Amino acid sequence: CETCDRYISGRVLEAGGKHYHPTCARCVRCHQMFTEGEEMYLTGSEVWHPICKQAAR
């Protein structure tokens, strides 16, 4: 997992080739988790909900 550096077994979320436990992938702006299939916007090592990234501009 990109966030906690632990092995992932079971469900995995992926953004930009990086992998996360579903509970570790959180938006840097709103701190909410991502749901399965939800779009993730990756900037460097930061993961955003698209609407949060747009609002931060």
Rank of each mutant, 00 (worst) to 15 (best):
C1E: 15
C1Y: 01
E2W: 07
E2N: 15
E2D: 15
E2K: 14
T3C: 07
T3F: 15
T3P: 00
C4D: 01
C4R: 00
C4Y: 00
C4V: 01
C4P: 00
D5S: 12
D5R: 12
D5N: 14
R6P: 00
R6I: 04
R6V: 02
R6G: 03
Y7N: 14
Y7P: 14
Y7G: 08
Y7H: 15
I8V: 01
I8W: 00
I8N: 02
S9T: 13
S9N: 11
S9R: 08
S9C: 04
G10L: 00
G10P: 05
G10S: 03
G10E: 07
G10W: 00
R11E: 14
R11A: 09
R11M: 05
R11S: 10
R11Q: 06
R11V: 06
V12W: 05
V12P: 13
V12G: 14
V12A: 14
V12D: 08
V12R: 10
L13T: 13
L13W: 04
L13P: 02
L13D: 02
L13R: 06
L13S: 03
E14Y: 06
E14C: 07
E14K: 05
E14I: 12
E14T: 10
E14R: 07
E14H: 05
E14M: 10
E14V: 06
A15Y: 15
A15C: 14
A15Q: 15
A15G: 05
G16M: 10
G16I: 00
G16E: 06
G16P: 00
G16L: 02
G16C: 09
G17V: 02
G17K: 06
G17Q: 04
G17Y: 00
K18F: 02
K18L: 05
K18W: 00
K18T: 01
H19R: 09
H19E: 03
H19Y: 13
H19D: 04
H19C: 14
H19Q: 11
Y20C: 03
Y20M: 06
Y20F: 10
Y20N: 04
Y20I: 05
Y20S: 02
H21F: 00
H21P: 00
H21M: 00
H21G: 00
H21D: 00
H21Y: 01
H21E: 00
H21K: 00
H21A: 01
H21V: 00
P22Q: 05
P22K: 08
P22F: 15
P22H: 04
P22R: 05
P22G: 02
T23F: 03
T23N: 07
T23R: 09
T23D: 04
T23Q: 09
C24G: 02
C24I: 01
C24Y: 00
C24K: 03
C24N: 02
A25N: 14
A25T: 12
A25F: 13
A25G: 04
A25W: 08
A25L: 11
R26V: 10
R26G: 03
R26Q: 14
R26H: 09
R26S: 14
R26Y: 07
R26F: 08
C27P: 05
C27T: 05
V28K: 10
V28E: 07
V28C: 09
V28G: 08
R29P: 00
R29I: 15
R29A: 13
R29K: 12
R29W: 07
C30L: 01
C30G: 01
C30S: 02
C30T: 06
C30H: 02
H31R: 11
H31N: 07
H31G: 13
H31P: 01
H31L: 10
H31W: 08
Q32A: 12
Q32M: 11
Q32S: 08
Q32E: 12
Q32Y: 03
Q32N: 15
M33N: 14
M33R: 15
M33F: 14
M33S: 15
M33G: 14
F34P: 12
F34R: 04
F34D: 04
T35C: 08
T35L: 09
T35Q: 10
E36C: 08
E36A: 11
E36V: 07
E36I: 05
G37F: 05
G37V: 09
E38P: 03
E38R: 04
E38L: 01
E38S: 07
E39M: 03
E39Y: 03
E39A: 07
E39G: 09
M40G: 04
M40H: 14
M40W: 15
Y41G: 11
Y41C: 14
Y41Q: 14
Y41A: 10
Y41H: 15
L42M: 09
L42V: 15
L42S: 13
L42R: 09
L42D: 11
T43W: 04
T43V: 11
T43R: 06
T43A: 06
T43P: 04
G44V: 04
G44D: 15
G44S: 12
G44Y: 04
S45E: 11
S45M: 12
E46P: 02
E46W: 05
E46S: 07
E46G: 10
V47K: 06
V47C: 08
V47G: 03
W48H: 13
W48Y: 15
W48R: 14
W48K: 13
W48N: 10
H49L: 01
H49F: 02
H49S: 01
H49R: 01
H49W: 00
H49E: 03
P50F: 08
P50T: 13
P50G: 10
P50L: 11
I51A: 13
I51C: 04
I51G: 14
I51Q: 12
I51H: 14
C52H: 01
C52Y: 01
C52I: 00
C52P: 01
C52W: 01
C52Q: 01
C52N: 05
C52A: 00
C52M: 01
K53P: 12
K53V: 10
K53N: 13
K53R: 10
Q54V: 08
Q54Y: 02
Q54N: 15
A55Y: 11
A55S: 09
A55Q: 08
A56I: 08
A56L: 10
A56H: 13
A56C: 09
A56R: 05
R57E: 15
R57V: 08
R57C: 09
R57N: 12
R57G: 11
